[in-house]
Design a protein around this nucleic acid. Structure first.
Length: 1055
RNA sequence: GGGUGAUUAGCUCAGUGGUAGAGCGCUUCGUUCACAUCGAAGAUGUCAGCGGUUCAAAUCCGUUAUCACCCACCA
């Protein structure tokens, strides 16, 4: 067998991965030899996504933990899968449609989702294949998908994830943890859906703020007084208006009030009076009250704020407090241009066109004339412009005097211009659509997070407390978040949690399992003393009013419902009146089941059996659930819940969640809340939060910046092992990770180094094992110091690696291995072994070399699986593949302190001689004799044992004992000194300089050491071992200094 | 506005009380039979500033400066 000079990663990686898969190496429970389980849930990537650097990092860490546990004999499962990613995936398909000038609304919902499924099946495997290239050892036979088993899922997409999601929704609804409500939500005008707070990002934009006059009702006037900070009056005038400042003039028509701070004296005279919204035909202008509220800041703007409850979150709060009506002005549909095409920019919301009903709820009386005709159907920004123009032309814009100079004449004059302030403001944008979010008052579904947040908080409080005092127990039912500061983020968010809006007006996702129908409870009230509304009256009028409700009543109700449903179908955001609402949330598969469920409810209430032949109208809520609602169930969902599967029993709660901090809120917190709410257990005992991958300059990698490093390109160029090792070595907890190609190349060289160390052993027949097939379990019974030393070093490495991985200190593990393999094995042990490969110690040394290299493969395998597996196969007949090799358990018992001391002495001696030679410019190839001028017993023994390798590595030519010859350089070591005769070669001045410099450094050190030891407080207070160590250091330094001085003196005598 | 973190060699970063390290880069030398994707040697730091605690501080505390990120409702 002759090995190639380097590892061919491209060829070997594919071959090895196929071999692992074929042998079922990654299957749940493969290689299990003990009862303990270890389970990691992959953070499911978007099904349309492709592997980016963040994935590569995240999954490398998971793979390391998984492979490590699998080799240690745990019953291991790394559960893979993908997320259906509602908005993102729907966006991909809609973009495709747009290429052929089609839109989603051109087809039926079923046809559209069928297209999405096609897309899923087309691109869903991309990321799986990419993860395989990285070496991820997931159990692909269990690959999961958050939409599997949905009603319209095509063949091959079976599964029970959908059922689990629906069941959780129903259970939570029945427990009162989910409700439907009319609230102000973040409306994304591009996707025409509500989104949650987390999906909104605040972006700083240059904004404008306009100042307008709202005339007081009836032409009333008041004395407006402005004072400076010291209370001096700086302005006093009579006004017949109140001046407001706004950044959103187009919402003025929806104002419900003008608010000022209670302490604001300027407006005190007019609080409680009415003012007029100065937009639209004069005869139809609304009057709104001037109220007080703590919210307005008297020092900002004019101090007076218009309150538009339906289009601003602050205003909404003020309106709630002050019982001010909220008028929704806008439609949820994008405005159309006159030619019927949508506006190019996405942020288009029409000013409401609907009269009366529906859109302008909560203030139905005023609805009719809310929006004048000339503003209807406009995009919000067009409407803004028109409103500003109208106000300005009417002279109601607040103006300021502006000095300007006539260019022609040079004459200076003052002119009045509208007061428009330019200021930077944070504006909410959709994180996917990048368009400005419109707060909208709509009916949405919410999770009442306040009711389920406490267990999620407590579990982490307990986990962190245990982590703190060192009593952490994985089975105790709590969760720790590492590093600690991310726990703070978690607490902060959960302690201030808002209701979670979970309905999305999309088509791709889990449709909400709620069916609407006539609420018969409503009629019950009529039988009492309640006064009927118009509808009730109508229903009752045509029904037989009597002791019981008759078939006729039901027919009438059915007809009324049908009418509502027609409206609902034509207008997705149709607001159901209160008599039409979900009266039962149930797990039903289709309309027939829903109808049957309703009928059962009716029978139970007051209808006779004769009504069951009625066709009763029901309607399913068209909204789908937020993607994170289903992702939140990932741990139990992938394990088969609600079925009581073996996997669920075995692997749940799972062990570690490895994730980036950017989805702590989106995902981690929600999994915690939902698992606790549904199965009353934490989903994992440890959350390991890692850094974000950035480019060399520390910028977040993004397509728009063009600074993306594609992990697959890097794998092509350097091999997966090098990429993985780089990421691991840089995985210091909770920092940014700046990736550069140089670093990857460095670690690629490291793989080559290991490869070539193996090549050396192979050439020296070190790999002809005396015990083929034992897979290096047996530690060689070595006698020679060199071998005993490297065995001890191997044990140290194993201990350090296990400890590092146990604490999620991935970089420590990587650096330990790097230093061991390169710094110990390659730099020294391979060299030391060369003279031993023949002669008395040959067999032992070869066995040790073989064993040490095996240990390198094993210990490195979790980080660098490919090259190690390849070397494992190349170097022996193995009973098992490396992926299933047994992780070693040897420890400190293998460390031979005496061998350690001896070899470290030898290494220091060789290094010192090399150093002296280099500094004296001794030609590297020249072999020199050496004279031992002094040596203690231990030194003599060490020397005798290792003389051959010392001569070889220090390039010496024979050793004698005696006094330093003329013109020699001095090398001082612990216990002795050497002289290297260099008469004629040596430059005495240079040698003096070298020795003086070394001496200087020593004396500086000695000064510090002496200073400490002379300080009585140090000797008293410091631990004994530290004091002792300091004394030893000083003694050694003094000894060496004495030798250097002697050498210097000799040089002085000569020169 | 609130919060969190960072500031260490030319660069990228480790280092949680005992007197500072790695990789890359740089300089010099080297084709000794594992490896030039290599080897040997070398240079470079008031550990951001100031103050405090301590026998001892890069490390703990306070403060200042700069930067980064997260959260947030200034119309």
């Amino acid at each position: 067998m002759a090995m190639e000079k380097t590892f061919n990663a491209a060829e070997a990686e594919t071959r090895l991965y196929a071999q692992w898969e074929k042998s079922g190496a990654f299957r749940a429970g493969a290689n299990a030899s003990r009862d303990e389980t270890f389970c990691i849930m992959i953070p499911p990537p978007n099904v349309t996504g492709s592997l980016h650097m963040g994935h590569a990092f995240n999954n490398t860490l998971q793979d390391i933990l998984t492979r490590w546990h699998r080799m240690r004999g745990f019953d291991t499962l790394w559960q893979p899968g993908q997320d259906h990613a509602g908005i993102a995936t729907q966006m991909v398909v809609e973009r495709e449609l747009a290429k052929t000038n089609r839109r989603r609304t051109d087809m039926s919902r079923d046809d559209f989702t069928a297209l999405v499924w096609e897309q899923k099946q087309k691109s869903g495997n991309t990321i799986i294949d990419q993860l395989k290239r990285l070496g991820a050892s997931c159990d692909w036979s269990r690959n999961a998908f958050t939409m599997s088993g949905a009603p319209n899922a095509p063949a091959g997409e079976e599964g029970n994830f959908h059922d689990a999601v629906i069941k959780v929704f129903v259970d939570m609804y029945n427990k009162g943890l989910i409700y439907r409500g009319k609230r102000l939500v973040n409306w994304d005008p591009h996707f025409e859906t509500a989104i949650s707070d987390l999906e909104v990002e605040q972006i700083e934009v240059q904004g404008q703020m306009w100042h307008f006059k709202y005339p007081l009702a009836g032409g009333e006037t008041y004395e407006y007084v402005e004072k400076d900070e010291d209370g001096n009056v700086i302005l006093r005038e009579t006004r017949d208006y109140i001046s407001i400042a706004t950044t959103r003039p187009e919402t003025m028509l929806g104002d419900g009030a003008v608010a000022v701070h209670p302490s604001d004296e300027r407006y005190a005279p007019i609080v409680g009076k009415l003012c007029e919204i100065p937009v639209g035909p004069k005869e139809h202008r609304r009057l709104i009250p001037i109220i007080t509220d703590e919210y307005p800041d008297p020092t900002f703007g004019s101090g007076a704020v218009k309150i538009t409850g339906a289009h601003d979150f602050n205003d909404y709060a003020v309106a709630k407090r002050g019982n001010i009506p909220c008028y929704r002005l806008m439609d949820t549909k994008a405005a159309m241009r006159s030619d019927g095409a949508p506006y190019a920019e996405a942020a288009t919301i029409a000013m409401a066109v609907a009269k009366g009903e529906g859109t302008l709820t909560e203030a139905e009386t005023d609805a009719i004339n809310l929006v004048p005709d000339d503003l209807r159907g406009l995009d919000r920004y067009q409407a803004r412009k028109r409103v500003i123009d109208q106000i300005t032309s009417e002279g109601l814009a607040v103006t300021i005097l502006h000095k300007s100079i006539d260019k022609e004449t040079g004459a200076e004059h003052l002119e009045r211009i509208p007061l428009v302030e330019q200021n930077k403001m944070m504006q909410p944008h959709g994180d996917r659509s990048k368009v400005v979010i419109e707060p909208m008052l709509t009916d949405q579904w919410f999770v009442d997070t306040a009711k389920i947040v406490e267990p999620a908080l407590q579990a982490v409080r307990d986990g962190m407390a245990a982590q703190e005092d060192g009593t952490f127990d994985p089975d105790a039912g709590y969760t720790r978040i590492l590093p600690e500061r991310d726990a703070k983020t978690y607490f902060h968010w959960l302690e201030n949690i808002e209701p979670w809006c979970i309905s999305r007006q999309l088509w791709w996702g889990h449709q909400i399992p709620v069916w609407y129908g006539f609420n018969f409870e409503y009629l019950k009230d009529i039988d009492g003393n309640g006064s009927p509304t118009a509808l009730q009256a109508e229903v009752l009028e045509s029904a037989d009013i009597g002791s019981s409700i008759t078939v006729g009543t039901v027919r009438k109700c059915a007809a009324t419902c049908a009418e509502a449903i027609v409206k609902f179908e034509n207008e997705e955001t149709f607001q159901f009146p209160s008599w039409f609402r979900p009266i039962k949330v149930t797990e039903v598969k289709d309309r027939a089941e829903a109808e049957e469920a309703f009928l059962q409810g009716l029978r139970a209430y007051r209808f006779s059996k004769s009504t069951q032949d009625l066709v009763y109208p029901v309607w399913r809520d068209p909204d789908v659930l937020d993607t994170w609602f289903s992702s939140g169930l990932w741990p139990i969902g992938t394990l088969g819940w609600p079925e009581k599967t073996d996997e669920l029993k075995k692997y749940f709660p799972t062990d570690v969640l490895v994730t980036g901090f950017d989805i702590i809120f989106f995902w981690v917190a929600r999994m915690m809340m939902m698992q606790l709410a549904v199965v009353d257990q934490v989903p994992f005992h440890t959350v390991y939060v890692h850094a974000l991958v950035r480019d060399e300059k520390g910028k977040k990698m993004s397509k728009s910046l063009g600074n993306v490093l594609d992990p697959l390109d890097l794998i092509d160029e350097y091999g997966a092992d090098a990429v993985r090792f780089t990421l691991t070595a840089m995985a210091a907890m909770g920092r940014d990770l700046k990736l550069s190609k140089d670093r990857i190349a460095g670690y690629r060289n490291f793989t080559t180094k290991l490869w070539n160390a193996t090549r050396f052993a192979e050439m020296n027949n070190a790999l002809c094992r005396d015990a083929v097939g034992t897979d290096a379990i047996r530690v060689p019974d070595a006698k020679h110091t060199v071998n005993r030393w490297i065995i001890g070093e191997t044990a140290r490495a194993r201990i350090a690696v296990d400890e590092a991985l146990g604490q999620f200190r991935f970089n420590d593990a990587a650096n330990t291995l790097y230093a061991f393999v390169w710094g110990k094995v390659c730099d020294w042990y391979v060299e030391f072994s060369k003279p031993l490969m023949d002669g008395d110690h040959a067999a032992e040394t070869r066995a040790t070399m073989a064993w040490v290299l095996d240990q390198c493969y094993i210990l490195m395998h979790p980080i660098m699986p490919f090259i190690t597996e390849e070397l494992w196969a190349l170097t022996g007949d193995r009973a098992k593949m490396l992926v299933h090799a047994d992780w070693p358990e040897y420890g400190a018992e293998l460390i031979d302190e005496a061998a350690d001391r001896e070899m470290n002495w030898v290494i220091t001696l060789i290094s010192d001689i090399r150093s002296a030679r280099a500094e004296m410019h001794v030609p590297a190839g020249l072999k020199l004799p050496i004279v031992m001028t002094a040596m203690d017993e231990k030194g003599r023994a060490a020397l005798a044992n290792n003389i051959e390798l010392i001569q070889r590595l220090a390039r010496l030519d024979g050793m004698t004992e005696g006094t330093a010859p003329k013109g020699s350089i001095t090398v001082a070591v612990e216990g002795g000194a050497f002289a290297i005769p260099l008469e004629g070669v040596i430059d005495i001045a240079e040698e003096k300089a070298r020795l003086s410099k070394a001496l200087e450094k020593l004396e500086k050190d000695m000064g510090g050491l002496k200073g400490r030891l002379n300080n009585p407080k140090f000797v008293e207070s410091a631990p004994e071992e530290i004091v002792e160590e300091t004394r030893e250091k000083l003694a050694l330094a003094e000894e060496e200094a004495a030798k250097l001085k002697a050498a210097l003196k000799r040089l002085a005598d000569i020169g």
